[in-house]
């Protein structure tokens, strides 16, 4: 496994007694496209703010590129190598698109003129227009342009597609994937849109109540989780006690639907041992995995 670009260990953070993070362990491999999922208030934005040095943890540690995110000097170095899109998508309203590009460029020696030209055109951003006159979707695009164009090794994007129309979302996702493939940029992004995450992420972490409840490569998770449809040969009067791993069991008549999170083969064998039962296996979507954990917690 590649060296982690982001690593947190037992990260804790509370606000006025409310625990936002309760021992978060996170490991984001270099070059990955890492989807960071969770319900509202799960701790996604708090984690991102800790990584960017906006907040200080109450316990545990957070490292980006092996540098302590809590150290002021290291945090400046981290930010030099990170492209960031905040949840708010707010930029300086009194600047024009052209001015904010020149302003941001001055802080990053590795600025890529070719990329900013490319994204200005792709995102159809008018250079002379003031930021106060841009829609939220346009500001989202502009923030993406600024984050990508400075040649960052890591993009930290908090709900990057927020405010974008479906076409723009497609464009943005396609560009992010291309960037990761061409430049080896690591992309760490939070999103509520599970379809987007599934479309581009190769790793995911689902966070709930400030702790990671599911984490790993998307392929592994999809291999681990399966939906089983079992048609029983006869109505069984006694309830079936399924082996461990059958998380979500719904029975209607002789049809049983199971969302299995582990021990899939054992569950299949158990089903096949029932008189006259037939079993079908279906792949699950990320949405199903997310909803299962969200309900469970």
């Amino acid at each position: 496994m590649a060296d982690p670009v982001i690593e947190t260990q037992e990260l804790h953070k509370s606000f006025k007694g409310n625990e936002a993070l309760s021992g978060l362990n996170l490991n984001v491999p270099a070059g990955s496209i890492f989807g960071f999922l969770g319900r509202n208030g799960a701790g996604k934005t708090t984690t991102i703010k800790l990584l960017m040095g906006f907040l200080k943890p109450d316990g545990g540690n957070a490292r980006v590129f092996g540098l302590a995110a809590t150290d002021a000097a290291a945090s400046v170095e981290i930010r030099r190598r990170v492209g960031f899109v905040s949840e708010e998508k707010d930029l300086y309203p009194y600047m024009t698109v052209e001015q904010i590009i020149r302003f941001t460029q001055s802080f990053f020696p590795k600025w890529r003129d070719d990329l900013d030209r490319r994204y200005l055109k792709l995102f159809d951003l008018p250079e002379s227009r003031k930021i106060s006159d841009l829609s939220k979707g346009m500001r989202s695009k502009l923030m993406l342009l600024l984050a990508i164009s400075h040649g960052a090794e890591l993009l930290i994007l908090d709900e990057p597609a927020e405010g974008l129309d479906p076409v723009a979302v497609e464009d943005a996702l396609r560009e992010l994937v291309a960037l990761a493939a061409a430049e080896g940029t690591t992309i760490f992004f939070s999103s509520h849109h599970l379809e987007e995450v599934e479309q581009i992420a190769d790793h995911v972490c689902i966070i709930d109540h400030g702790a990671a409840i599911v984490t790993g490569s998307l392929d592994d998770l999809k291999a681990q989780y399966q939906r089983l449809r079992i048609v029983l040969g006869e109505d069984l009067r006694a309830p079936i006690h399924w082996v461990d791993g059958a998380d979500q069991v719904r029975q209607e008549g002789r049809t049983v639907d199971i969302l299995a999170s582990r021990n899939v083969d054992a569950i299949v064998n158990q089903a096949r041992s029932l008189p006259g039962a037939s079993v079908e296996r279906f792949p699950v979507t990320l949405k199903e995995i997310f909803l299962e954990h969200a309900r469970r917690n």
């Binding site: 960017m52 002021a72 400046v76 708010e88 707010d90 941001t104 802080f107």
Partner: peptide, 16 residues
């Protein structure tokens, strides 16, 4: 409430 553009400023590689 929201901090507006302060997150953009704070994300620049500049010390406080």
């Amino acid at each position: 409430g929201l901090h507006g553009s302060s997150y953009f400023t704070l994300s620049l590689p500049v010390s406080r």
